[in-house]
Design a protein around this nucleic acid. Structure first.
Lengths: 161, 161
DNA sequence: TATTGTTATACTCTATAACTATA
DNA sequence: TATAGTTATAGAGTATAACAATA
């Protein structure tokens, strides 16, 4: 016994360590996979919010992502400069900017989605198919009911980052 | 069909979303659990490195945690001010600070460990015991082999944050 | 008066560079 | 010459406060 160990537990078994580094590794993998497309995983999160939905206000996107509306400005700035989205005043309420994915934006999303899924697969590679499914299901389960009364929230109210 | 959905996949199913928010929730739970003891989950990580080991240099602790040695200074400053650790020059190499957990520091760690484990339990509450074990095992599995040749690294060489 | 987007500012976290004392 | 600790500084990232336009 090289190290006298009063009350030693293996630190790498701590769930906090495991989950944090799982997050770090998955982020690194997806960032690498998306980099050739000129976006990162945070950008991809924005695309995921916009795709397949009606045009949204900047604030609505920000709320979905759980970031401040001031943070959203620069993100949309970048997307608009790259021609990924259009930003025009909402005719119904001209305070709002209506954010809409462009054709090239949708094409980019499709490529990004493929790259993202490949990164997921790489991340999950050490698990067999059954375990991978179970892993995903367990993640969903631990996120579902932080409500005290045990009722689940409808999916569309959840934040998305 | 309220929302016309060209190429829609549910964003909450993305593994990136699930892992990120699992991390956020677990961190929130552990921070809350540790707050009454005057420490947070990052502090607890430092305690976990120090407990049950010989006294270490600041740099060794920093390396284990994967942070810069300059970041370590303030962390140890706080611990020393609270009497959790002692910091004295290593007689063998007086450039080094020998960091050692004090008696009260060890007592604090034990309380913190109990609080931390309770937070883990709360996090895992939606899973039955078998699934919880499988979940932990899956997390370990996806973290083990980022080495290209497939060989695992010895545990003591891994970073710990 | 309240809200959306915007800008300017501040705050947190962490790393880089430079200094000191030791080796 | 190189290394451990320290300090000062700078860089991300994100939030808060204030302002203009609109409701």
């Amino acid at each position: 016994m090289p190290t006298p160990a009063p009350h030693a537990r293996e630190p790498h078994d701590a769930l906090g360590y495991l989950v944090k580094h799982a997050h770090l590794r998955l982020t690194a993998l997806t960032d690498t996979a998306l980099a050739p497309l000129g976006i990162d995983s945070k950008d991809f999160g924005v695309l995921r919010v916009l795709v397949g939905r009606e045009p949204m206000s900047q604030q609505a996107v920000a709320a979905k992502l759980g970031v401040d509306r001031t943070t959203m400005v620069a993100l949309i700035d970048g997307f608009e400069a790259k021609g990924i989205v259009t930003r025009k005043p909402d005719p119904a309420d001209r305070r709002r900017n209506s954010i809409e994915l462009t054709g090239p934006g949708l094409a980019l999303y499709r490529k990004a989605d493929a790259a993202y899924l490949a990164a997921e697969d790489e991340f999950l590679a050490p698990l067999d198919a059954t375990t991978a499914t179970l892993f995903r299901r367990a993640l969903r389960a631990v996120l579902t009911p932080p409500t005290p009364d045990g009722r689940d929230r409808p999916d569309r109210d959840r934040r998305l980052t």
